[in-house]
């Protein structure tokens, strides 16, 4: 084969395989294809023949009818994901991290506020007890019994 025929041969092969639409041709070979077409009546004739088949192929009008949103919801809500061990561990850690950063702070804050309030009240109203025997008497007095200094 004459070396000059190689680009022509390749151009013919491409048109015969991919059709007449430039967008269907391999991207790396498009420029060479256009050059080859400019210099060959035979190639242009082949291009025209394949363009007829392309126009018939375009008549095929299959359409999608599934509702993508519905399909996505059904699958995601109805089926568990199959996770690898590392994904499971990673997801478990994320859940712990999320719960620490979101929900746990509420009871923690409530407990802290209660404690702080208790300390504040205790420190401002604290009165030192000099005679502990008196305090014990108050503490151990049976309800209903009168406190007597003489006992």
């Amino acid at each position: 084969m004459n070396p000059d025929d190689k680009p022509q041969k390749r151009a013919t092969d491409i048109i015969t395989a991919y059709g007449a639409e430039q967008s269907a041709w391999p991207e790396a070979e498009r420029a060479a294809m256009l050059d080859a077409l400019q210099s060959s009546d035979e190639l242009r004739q082949r291009l025209s023949e394949e363009a007829s088949l392309d126009s018939l192929l375009q008549q095929s009008n299959r359409v999608a009818t599934l509702d993508a949103t519905q399909v996505a919801q059904q699958i995601a809500r109805g089926l568990p994901q199959q996770l690898t061990l590392s994904q499971r561990l990673s997801r478990g850690l994320e859940v712990v991290a999320e719960s620490l950063s979101s929900d746990i702070w509420k009871p923690t804050l409530a407990a802290s506020l209660t404690l702080s309030a208790g300390i504040a009240v205790g420190s401002t109203t604290y009165e030192p007890v000099e005679d502990w025997s008196q305090a014990e008497q108050y503490s151990f007095t049976v309800v209903g019994e009168e406190y007597s200094d003489e006992s």
Partner: peptide, 9 residues
């Protein structure tokens, strides 16, 4: 996932 399904389904 829904976004990808809408793009590819």
């Amino acid at each position: 996932y829904s976004e990808l399904v809408e793009r590819h389904l």
